[in-house]
Design a protein around this nucleic acid. Structure first.
Lengths: 192, 192
DNA sequence: TTGGATTTGTGAATTAATGCACGAAACCTG
DNA sequence: CAGGTTTCGTGCATTAATTCACAAATCCAA
């Protein structure tokens, strides 16, 4: 088992960053602020992270990983609505972090990581469903236009959701989103 | 400045004890429980305290001292009602601790420390008021019956207050208590 | 009462966190 | 841009906290 001091320091530091992001924009948060808020020596921050960016990097990494785990558990052949529910519930649970990340302009870095996650997940899901529904749809190319389209759309919706103070509960968001994903990912290749 | 690690450990440990006292009675709380709850090594508890009793001892000490400080700031010539307000506000603020202490039977130890505090404070206040109102009332003997009487009464009222889920706000308690203290400490020597 | 499990108190080695100090970089502000 | 102030990143010595281990005490059910 890892030394509990490490866990406690890191948790305090990470929580401090998130809290600070609620008032200040990320780039005007100083390491001093973080260590003060975390009630930890400034030296301790450097003991665990290279700098601010490394810190927020690891925060993002962690959340994306947990999201991915959630998806893996649900299975890639889950219904879009069910998957969406997992997403929005997780996002709501950690709304402090996500809204702070999405609110701060200049954070295209996070947006890209976030988008990547959805793209990956969408590809998995489409592939998972192909097995059951139709063997080859031509959607398997890596730079698939539909996937990019839908991925960007999801991120946009999430962004809107946070910026407007989460006007709908995760269940409703998941349901609406599910419908849209169905329409855009399921049955559009069989055309003329 | 004291090392922040010390403060953090001690605060975690003390908070843990108070939390644990809400479910278990004090004597069935183990050091293991405390260190687990505090998220601290068992060794760390022994680093700061001799044993459970030393721990709770210091907790009591601390609260009594803070109460005393409050009284000193207010001044011993304050009105009984005002003083009572300070008491009850403090008690309400730390109701977790005080109700846990008063609830657990077998804690005559705490009761006595608590009583001592009030006795001391009453003597100070009576003395403080003598200056303004009447020079010698014969109440200055150390083992004064009236003081003991009133002291026990206060502790009894506080005990009742907690055991009945704080039915009145501190302000009302202070006002009622003030009246009773006035009646019993101010004007009773000028008799026949 | 006995015997197994739990809790206790402590020793010892190791590791993490702290405080402090310092030069360098960045950053306002006049 | 010059000069003062803040923040940064790091070295270093010190101290607190941790893990692990162990023998003694205590508890508790069979």
């Amino acid at each position: 088992m890892k030394d509990r001091r490490i866990r406690k320091s890191q948790e305090a530091i990470k929580a401090a960053v998130i809290e600070l992001m609620m008032d200040k924009s990320f780039d005007q948060i100083t390491i001093q602020d973080i260590s003060d808020r975390a009630d930890v020596s400034r030296r301790t921050v450097y003991l665990h992270y290279m700098d601010k960016f490394d810190l927020v990097d690891k925060l993002i990494e962690e959340h994306i990983n947990r999201l991915r785990e959630l998806c893996d558990i649900a299975g890639h052949d889950a219904e879009y609505t069910d998957m969406g529910l997992l997403w929005f519930e997780y996002l709501e649970k950690h709304h402090l972090f996500f809204s702070a990340m999405l609110a701060s302009r200049g954070n295209s870095f996070f947006r890209n990581r976030f988008l990547d996650f959805f793209l990956q997940e969408l590809k998995n899901m489409v592939k998972g469903k192909e097995i059951h529904e139709r063997s080859i749809t031509g959607l398997t190319e890596d730079d698939d236009v539909e996937t990019q389209f839908v991925g960007a759309a999801i991120v946009g919706v999430v962004e809107w959701w946070f910026k407007n103070g989460k006007p709908h509960p995760p269940s409703l968001m998941a349901q609406r989103m599910g419908t849209l994903l169905e329409r855009n990912l399921k049955a559009d290749t069989p055309k003329a």
